[in-house]
């Protein structure tokens, strides 16, 4: 090893050491632990064989997919609007839409309570308008609202950035060839945004799959996977099962992100 390589190895050693000692080793440990519980290796397949875990998986995936679709649509429209129009207050509007970027899950859960809780804004409004107090914070609607809350800002930012890179002449060219607004959206805008949609959609999905703080603050009735893991660990002291499920959940989110990166890269390359 020459002097240069030795220096580089020395410089990255501290980060590598921290990572190995506190992340890689513990992960390997719980991966092993997951297989050494009462169920043995079957703990890893329990997520599809055990009714309770499988239901949790299905509802978590369904919720995450729904949130991802809704977020991409809402953020796509808003991002398009903010990227294409110049008006006073646009900067402020963008800033407000990205404000919740650094809110932790617990705070987002609380925001949903402020909206749809027993003393929430929606309840006040519905009581006032229809004489009926709508409370949705503690149901699946609350989770949906919460996940939407943390997903929108991130996806909007990605959309604005992608839209600003899009040459307006492309849309004009399509129109000059006779394409109406929907056609332009389908043939020009969406293909150009595809890499951004894939990657931000994947992040949105993976985040929703692993979201704990929001669900922890809100969920009283719905079993999403992270809450099941937490319950098994804390209340049932079922360490092996919690470990196995954590690994499965981690692998799912990691795979989704990795797959999205490959796809987004490929479609970005295809889009030139």
């Amino acid at each position: 090893m020459n002097r240069h390589a030795r220096r580089l190895a020395l410089l990255i050693a501290p980060a590598a050491a921290v990572f190995c000692a506190f992340w890689l080793l513990p992960m390997v440990r719980i991966a092993v632990l997951g297989a050494t519980g009462p169920r043995g290796l079957a703990a890893y397949s329990a997520i599809v064989t055990d009714r309770r875990y499988f239901d949790a998986l299905v509802s978590t995936v369904a919720l995450s997919v729904a949130v991802t679709v809704a977020t991409v649509i809402v953020s796509g429209i808003a991002g398009l609007f903010l990227a294409r129009n110049r008006f006073p207050g646009r900067g402020l509007l963008t800033a407000m839409l990205t404000l919740p970027l650094a809110f932790p899950g617990v705070v987002i859960g609380f925001m949903v309570i402020m909206l749809g809780g027993r003393q929430g804004l929606i309840g006040d409004l519905s009581q006032h308008l229809f004489g009926l107090r709508i409370v949705f914070a503690y149901s699946i609607g609350g989770l949906f609202a919460g996940y939407l809350y943390f997903s929108i800002p991130r996806v909007i930012l990605t959309m604005i950035a992608a839209m600003e890179k899009l040459d307006p002449a492309l849309e004009e060219a399509a129109r000059s060839l006779g394409a109406g607004p929907w056609r332009v959206l389908r043939d020009v805008v969406i293909p150009a945004l595809k890499p951004a949609i894939i990657s931000s959609g994947a992040i949105c999905f993976a985040t929703s799959m692993g979201a704990f703080g929001t669900a922890f603050t809100l969920a009283t009735r719905i079993d999403v996977l992270p809450l099941v893991i937490y319950t098994d660990f804390t209340y049932s002291a079922n360490f092996a099962m919690a470990a196995a499920l954590s690994i499965v959940l981690g692998v799912i989110t990691w795979l989704v992100l990795g797959l999205a990166r490959t796809l987004a890269g490929a479609s970005a390359a295809a889009a030139g």
């Binding site: 040459d167 002449a169 004009e172 060219a173 150009a192 295809a270 889009a271």
Partner: peptide, 11 residues
Amino acid sequence: MVFQSYALFPN
């Protein structure tokens, strides 16, 4: 219409 940047569809 022909544009300065050509505006050919990259996809």
